[in-house]
Design a protein around this nucleic acid. Sequence first.
DNA 1: TACATATGATCAT
DNA 2: TGATCCTATGTAA
Length: 269
Amino acid sequence: MAEGHAVIRWARRLAPLVGEPLVHVQMPKRWGERPQTLVGQRLLPPRTHGKHLLLPLSGGETLHCHGAQYGSWQVGERPMELRKEPKHVRLRLDTADHEAVFYHGPTVELLTPDELAAHERLNRLGPDIMAGGEGSPDFDRAEAVHRIRQRGEDPIKPVLLDQRVVAGIGNIYASEGLFLARVDPRRPAASVTEAELDALWDATIPMMWDGTTRYGRTETTPREMWDEGHTRWVYQRKNKPCHVCGTPIELVRLPPYERATYLCPACQR
DNA sequence: TACATATGATCAT
DNA sequence: TGATCCTATGTAA
């Protein structure tokens, strides 16, 4: 549901609340009374790292949210009719005029500055594929290449999904990017050349930004190519003809998690 | 009505 | 390597 581009979309949608004092905060009970201490604080501009959303508050603490496959945000003017059952609410932030509700996401935690600095899961993330913002990419390619090389014989596609290697790429963009870079997803990670990885980043980064800003959905092909509801080069197009050469698209599953991987056996070597 | 699948990730073993 | 959590959606029966 939420690859890096979608998380940036969430951060942007929170803009109406930024800088305004919180008048109400709702969080799961396991944080006890701490949410009450957030009332009166202001939400500072949200940050993202890969699929992680960080909401700094004027008091110094930071809310950390991760949506996995099912998390979603609803942002609107108050009063707002909830799109889902109240029991599904994981976090709710209200300002005088707006409210933001996070549903279903498995991670919602309030971190002190020390906890944020020592956060293992955040600290081990690889370089953010979306870093620098649209039009001024600041993705650390050298660090990503270094981390990919360390994976040796592991197939490149699942390596790209490991957030410790590169943060922000999800299952759709991994298949789509490797197709555009003409790299076979089964190849050993260390065998993919620097030029091929450059082609991969060059294809993937603008594709993900387009997903953010142009369509608001995970669509990767030009509209005139869409067939039978398919809006991507290879993902979920098993046995459909490749948009480039006509060869039927293949579905393979690669270790360690056997997640669906799509490729054109003719275009990708 | 049941089942398969999923744009994610962690934990136990 | 397998189990588990979270929920929505499409397809088969």
